[in-house]
């Protein structure tokens, strides 16, 4: 079955090609010679125990409502995946913006990991993200 980006229902589709922050040659030399157990420890450290986390989306101000507000999302996705999803759901035009805030306080950088944000800021096991069509909480 092909994966359609619209076939979501209750989940936010992954961005299959999120840009990872590259590492320089100068800093990555040592990694080639790591013993296997050290490599494994490095890969596992800080990873979330859960693969998917729950996101709750709510409109701020005059932003349009969504019929569904609760979604599942892979924990390894960057925050930009939520913004992309919202732009499509709300049919935001090219020149318009969506502004997203965690707990109505701060706008994470686009590259912050959803799982990391969920771990630090969740309420009742949900990461609460408000969205607005113009900047709020300046």
């Amino acid at each position: 079955m092909s994966k359609s980006p619209e076939a979501t229902g209750d989940r936010i589709p992954d961005n299959d090609d999120p840009a990872e922050a590259p590492l320089t040659m100068a800093a990555s030399m040592i990694l080639a010679s790591l013993p296997r157990d050290a490599s494994t420890a490095l890969e596992e450290a800080g990873e979330l125990a859960v693969q998917k986390v729950t996101i709750r989306l709510h409109p701020i101000g005059s932003a349009p409502q969504l019929t569904q507000r609760q979604f599942k999302l892979s924990s390894n996705q960057p925050f930009s995946t939520i913004i992309r999803f919202l732009r499509r759901k709300l049919a935001v035009k090219e020149h318009e913006s969506v502004f997203c805030y965690v707990n109505n306080v701060f706008a994470p950088s686009l590259d912050e990991g959803v799982g990391q944000l969920w771990r630090c800021f969740k309420t009742n096991d949900e990461l609460v993200v408000g969205y607005a069509m113009s900047p709020a909480f300046g």
Binding site: E20, A21, P22, L23, A27, S28, L31, S39, L42, E43, G46, D111, E112, G113, Q116
Partner: peptide
């Protein structure tokens, strides 16, 4: 420092 899942040649940063 981290190894991207699908690309063995590049290294990346994980936060």
């Amino acid at each position: 420092p981290s190894k991207p899942r699908d690309d063995k040649s590049n290294r990346s940063i994980r936060v």
